[in-house]
């Protein structure tokens, strides 16, 4: 990787970050909504939920819920990159980018990393709220969780980039990612532990391969280690590998699609 490649990557990341900065008001609104979600609805929900007896260990549902809801936000905001990319395609920005003196691979990786970082930074205030509510957290867990959240956001952005550039349709993008967003969050361990889901086999199988389950349970394992490792969806190493594999796999998919398949025009 030479200096020009790094420079191009940096500028593509900057492109996505600039776009996010213009949405400061939107970000602030989402953060406020998140605070209300975790303080009002989260506490109300926790008051109704009784996990004791259902699980082999005693888990505080509120803590479980906090990391689940943060993960669902991270996923939704990463998926919302689809609408941004679709808008860019509609306005011809993708054609403009394809004409620039940047290799297709660097373009794909740059937009994947840039979109991932933008989504990650978007959720950073929410993460801070979660840490504040969890109270006693160690620095190591914070660093590892931030890194894994960033990797997760990049992998979702890589996936989204590949699909939107292949679909070339605003309507198809809206439908597909709207459905994917709501379905995948619900078919995961965001709100329910895997052991509870095991009573409904098909649900459990989807949750087991669902990347949202892996990132949610990985974060829980980091912060609620002693209680949670017994009921997590997989071992910490397996979950971390899954997230890393996802990031590498979807970035490679984005590179392949942008390099071999994507051309301007044809937006429906």
């Amino acid at each position: 990787m030479n200096l020009n490649t790094l420079r191009a990557l940096y500028l593509l990341i900057l492109w996505d970050l600039n776009k996010m900065l213009r949405r400061a008001v939107f970000v602030a609104m989402r953060v406020i909504w998140f605070v209300i979600q975790v303080t009002v609805f989260g506490l109300a929900l926790t008051a109704m939920v009784r996990l004791r007896g259902s699980l082999p260990v005693d888990v505080n549902y509120y803590e479980f819920y906090l990391l689940g809801i943060y993960t669902s936000m991270l996923f939704s905001i990463s998926v919302s990159r689809a609408y941004d990319i679709a808008e860019e395609f509609e306005e011809g920005i993708v054609e403009y980018h394809l004409s620039l003196p940047i290799s297709r691979r660097v373009f794909a990786v740059g937009r994947t990393i840039g979109g991932g970082i933008a989504s990650f930074l978007f959720t950073l205030p929410m993460f801070a709220v979660v840490l504040w509510l969890l109270e006693d957290v160690n620095v190591e867990a914070v660093i590892i969780s931030l890194s894994s959240a960033l990797l997760f956001a990049m992998s979702i952005t890589g996936f989204v980039l590949s699909i939107v550039l292949s679909l070339k349709s605003g309507d198809a993008t809206d439908i597909m990612f709207g459905v994917l967003d709501s379905l995948l969050i619900r078919l995961s361990t965001v709100f329910y532990p895997a052991v509870v889901l095991s009573r409904y086999a098909p649900y459990l199988y989807v949750a087991l391969v669902n990347p949202i389950s892996h990132i949610a349970d990985f974060l829980r394992t980091l912060f609620l280690f002693e209680e949670y490792r017994a009921i997590a969806i997989a071992s910490p190493i397996a979950m971390a590998s899954y997230i890393l594999g996802l990031a590498v796999g979807f970035s490679s998919l984005a590179m392949y699609i942008v390099e071999k398949k994507v051309e301007g025009g044809g937006w429906r």
Binding site: R7, A8, L14, W15, E91, I93, E95, Y96, P101, I102
Partner: peptide
């Protein structure tokens, strides 16, 4: 290439857009 239809989003500002372009080239 200068496209037939100008390529920018409605929230873009000319100076920022051209500055980014200049750095990319």
């Amino acid at each position: 290439i200068a496209f037939q239809e100008p390529k920018a989003l409605w929230v873009d500002k000319p100076y920022e857009l051209l500055l980014w372009h200049a750095r990319v080239v």
